[in-house]
Structures are given as structure tokens and as C-alpha cells.
């Protein structure tokens, strides 16, 4: 009994905190999403008006598509890049560990600095185009053309986050017993086949972890499009979190902004359900 109380006592502060700063606000957001509220006069109940008008609003639909596209693309590419980097720095090459630490530095740089730096690098006459020029690439307007702006933001995201997940993979790879590979070598398995039949199954839990966490990270993205492209050109990189801020704080439509929050919540909920399922499986294994 005494131990039970101690357990509750340890967990309670965090739960209270979340009740106050997470569940409470989300409940409030749900209520606000059914109201019209400009913060200057009291909220007025309007039923599903906000959602109905969102569904008919091309700007919202475009932001929703941008968000989903961004989540899918950046999650896949972050995972792929992290895995490739991990494989590269896990080779028995001298200095591989130092390379890993150096690559991890992209995670130490503040996001705001990342955004400002990449805005210059992706300038029509910036470093990226300068480096591509010898390969015959012409001028690419990375951030200002509606076909390349979103891919460019994804690229910056990958650059920033992949090295973090690389470290997760490195640890997983290091945990694979050497005997497995030796046995595979005797069987004549090499390269890709060895990767598919030994490495991949053994790092599967981490792979799932990375996919889910990267997706959660991407869903809340705000700063990169806000700073790097301002949501442009023509709304091509506007994501839901930006739309929430703009709708609420620029146009003072808090009810509508709350409705967008609920949609974003639904997306993240779907991602988290996947995550839950994964954690449970891990517990049982």
C-alpha cells in the first residue's frame, strides 16, 4: 500500500501538469471550435459552421494537403537518410565515431539559425546552386517556385533531423552481435542481401520508432516555412500550424483557428495511435 502511494506521488506532478497545460487546453479548443470568437466579445456558439466553412475554403484545403505531403515526404526521407548515415558511420573506418559526432552538430544548431542559413544557401545565386553548377544544373529557384519550395523545406528538415535519428540507428546497429554477420558471411550473404536478411529485421523496432517520431515532429512544423518561405510562394508551403497562427492572431478568428487545431489534432491522433500500437507490441514482446 505504501509503495502504491509512492508510485502515485511520483507520477502525479506530471499528470497534474498535463491536465492543466494539455488536456484542459485541448478541451477548450474543442469547445472554441464550435464558436465564433474574436477575443474582443464573448464566444458565440455557431455549431459546425467553422468546420463547414473550412471544408469549402481552398486555402485551408491547400494547407491540409501541404501538411500531409510534408509529413509523408519528410518522414520517409528522414528515416532513409538517418539509416544511410548510420550505416556509413558504423563502418570500421578509422575516425568514423568522430564523423558521427560532427554530423550530429546539425542538431546542436538552433532551428532559427538553420532557417536563416538555408534561406541564403537556397537563394537563386546561393551556395547550393553554385555547387550544382559544375554538374550542369541551371539556376533553380528553390524557395520561390511552387514546384521546388516544398521539396526544399523537406530537404532542410531532413538535414536538421536525420542526424538525430542516425544516432538511434547507430546504437541499434552496434547492438547486433558480430556472430550474425560472420554466419552470414559463411553463407555467402553480402551487401544488400545481408542487410535485408540480418540488419533490417534486427533494427525493426528502432525503424518503427524513428518513423513515428519523425512523423510527429513533422506534423507540428511551424518555424521552417514561417521563416524560410513565409508560407509562399502563393501558399505552396503554408502548413496547418501556420494557418492556425495566422487565423487566430492575425485575423483574430479564434474559433476558426481552434477548428483548424482540431483537424491537426486528428492527424496527430492517427499517427499516435500507430505509435501506441507499436509500444504495446514492444511491451508484450
Amino acid at each position: 500500500m505504501r509503495l502504491r502511494l509512492w508510485g502515485v506521488a511520483f507520477v502525479l506532478p506530471a499528470l497534474l501538469f498535463f491536465a492543466f497545460f494539455k488536456y484542459g487546453p485541448m478541451g477548450w479548443a474543442f469547445w472554441l471550435s464550435f464558436t465564433s470568437y474574436d477575443m474582443l466579445s464573448p464566444p458565440r456558439f455557431v455549431g459546425i459552421d467553422n468546420f463547414a466553412s473550412l471544408a469549402a475554403d481552398p486555402v485551408f484545403v491547400q494547407s491540409l494537403q501541404n501538411t500531409l505531403g510534408y509529413i509523408v515526404a519528410s518522414t520517409l526521407l528522414i528515416t532513409l537518410a538517418a539509416l544511410l548515415l548510420a550505416l556509413a558511420v558504423s563502418t570500421p573506418v578509422p575516425g568514423a565515431r568522430a564523423c558521427m559526432s560532427a554530423i550530429f552538430l546539425t542538431n546542436v544548431m538552433p532551428i532559427i539559425a538553420v532557417c536563416l542559413v538555408w534561406r541564403f544557401l537556397l537563394h537563386p545565386h546561393g551556395l547550393v546552386n553554385q555547387l550544382l553548377a559544375p554538374f550542369g544544373a541551371g539556376r533553380i529557384d528553390w524557395l520561390t517556385s511552387d514546384t521546388t519550395a516544398m521539396p526544399a523545406i523537406v530537404m532542410v528538415t531532413v538535414w536538421r533531423f536525420a542526424p538525430y535519428f542516425m544516432v538511434v540507428f547507430v546504437a541499434a546497429l552496434a547492438a547486433i552481435p558480430a556472430e550474425y554477420y560472420e554466419a552470414a558471411a559463411i553463407d555467402g550473404a553480402r551487401g544488400l542481401r545481408r542487410f535485408r536478411s540480418i540488419t533490417l529485421p534486427l533494427i525493426l523496432p528502432q525503424l518503427f520508432f524513428v518513423v513515428v517520431v519523425a512523423a510527429l515532429l513533422s506534423a507540428r512544423l511551424f518555424l521552417m516555412p514561417y521563416i524560410v518561405t513565409g508560407g509562399g510562394p502563393g501558399g505552396a508551403t503554408r502548413v496547418l500550424s501556420m494557418l492556425i497562427y495566422e487565423t487566430g492572431f492575425s485575423y483574430l478568428k479564434m474559433g476558426r483557428a481552434a477548428a483548424i487545431s482540431v483537424v491537426l489534432f486528428a492527424i496527430v491522433l492517427a499517427l499516435t495511435l500507430a505509435q501506441m500500437k507499436l509500444f504495446m507490441r514492444d511491451e508484450e514482446a
Binding site: 529557384d141 520561390t144 517556385s145 511552387d146 514546384t147 509562399g232 510562394p233 502563393g234 501558399g235 505552396a236 495566422e246 492575425s250 485575423y251
Partner: peptide, 16 residues
Amino acid sequence: ELADALHRAVQKVMLS
């Protein structure tokens, strides 16, 4: 809203 809508329109015309 007006300024933002026009701004997006100009970007679409000039850049895309």
C-alpha cells in the same frame, strides 16, 4: 485578409 490574398495572387502570377 485582403493584403494576404493579393500577395498570394501576385506570387502565383510572378513565380508560377
